[in-house]
Design a protein around this nucleic acid. Structure first.
Lengths: 194, 194
DNA sequence: TTTGTAAATTGACACGGTGACAAGTAGAAG
DNA sequence: CTTCTACTTGTCACCGTGTCAATTTACAAA
């Protein structure tokens, strides 16, 4: 993809990544990131127009490093709706902890920053498509509970697997990742399928 | 309570309330709040030590105005666990939209501000007690599904009725308050009770 | 009426962080 | 040896918070 092997650019992205990971939601200062990257503060502005854009590029870099697309193969190749639902919840649910630090920063910034808002909304839009596909697969199998429309079921699933819920259950309540996944899967299955 | 009829203090609180409501999560500037209150910026510092504290006091003022305590009577006087669960979800679920603007601001600030964090965590702690009481009532009735402990069931309920979920369902997905309440109640009942 | 006092105003300032800009420098490629 | 590029150094304007001091207004008590 866009991994134009620009060494300092990558170093800056990695530094931003680490900073945001180590303090989710806190939007590190440009000077701190520069220090961590071993580069002058001005160099950051040589590669990114502003702080927001740097963070947005950091999320894109993460997606590149982790290979989001490959990760979703499991859910797309699932034999039936139920398997697809499980696989999608599992894929996304296991992706959240990897991106949480950076994502949380964007979530906080999106309230006050239009670009951050757009970037995060896009990401959530993509994620919603996965939900919609899983719900559609259920509907095709006749496995979707009749009280739902595909639209409302997608809404529900999308909210159920939101970053906020992951954060509350694992961080605030101290659930393990496995407990989280098991409960969310069970809830999705129980509420959506028949 | 602490409604020491201090007229300018109240005017400032009301101005802050309106500002935060009109732009949830954006943490209005002191000068804007002052302008809206028809008072000098410095006057704000005469009544509140800093911006965070002003917002915290604004939430307390809201609780006072709305009479949180009275509101919870319905759930405390419910005849059985199931009724109590329903009543509590309804009480809190209907309270969220009233406080959302100010609450959202605290939620955003809590990442970077220790005082905001404490204030919001306290509020969430109180809310959790209500969840725990409802779950305990269910358990007493033998109506709690056996896969739960009281602890994990409380966690689940607490997350289910979080402000974040209300925001996503009603704001991002456009659900009506009634649809939101109905779905959350159904989910709580289905997942927690037998 | 004068005086005392509390509440608010006005205007100035330091601080921290972003982002813009200009001039200088090191090193590789021709 | 020059030239181009990437980076550095240093400076500056801007914005918003929080502090301070001096002043004004309003009102109550003597």
């Amino acid at each position: 993809m866009s991994s134009e092997k620009n060494p300092t650019r990558i170093r800056i992205l990695k530094a931003a990544w680490e900073m945001l990971d180590s303090n989710p939601g806190v939007a590190a200062r440009m000077s701190d990131i520069a220090k961590k990257a071993g580069v002058s503060r001005q160099a950051l502005y040589l590669h990114f127009p502003n702080r927001t854009e740097l963070f947005i590029e950091t999320t894109k870099y993460q997606d590149e490093v982790f290979g989001v697309q490959d990760m979703l193969v499991a859910s797309r190749t699932a034999p039936d709706g139920l398997a697809r639902l499980d696989a999608y919840v599992e894929c996304w649910g296991n992706y959240i902890p990897k991106i949480f630090g950076v994502a949380k920063t964007l979530i906080v910034m999106k309230e006050t920053d239009e670009d951050a808002d757009r970037a995060w909304s896009d990401r959530m839009g993509d994620m919603r498509e996965g939900c919609a596909a899983a719900v559609a697969a259920l509907a095709r199998d006749g496995a979707l509970k009749p009280n739902w429309t595909e639209e409302t079921a997608t809404d529900f699933l999308w909210v159920l697997i939101s970053v906020a819920n992951w954060e509350l259950l694992t961080r605030a309540c101290g659930w393990s990742q496995e407990a989280y996944l098991a409960q969310i899967k069970a809830t999705a299955r129980t509420m959506l399928t028949q």
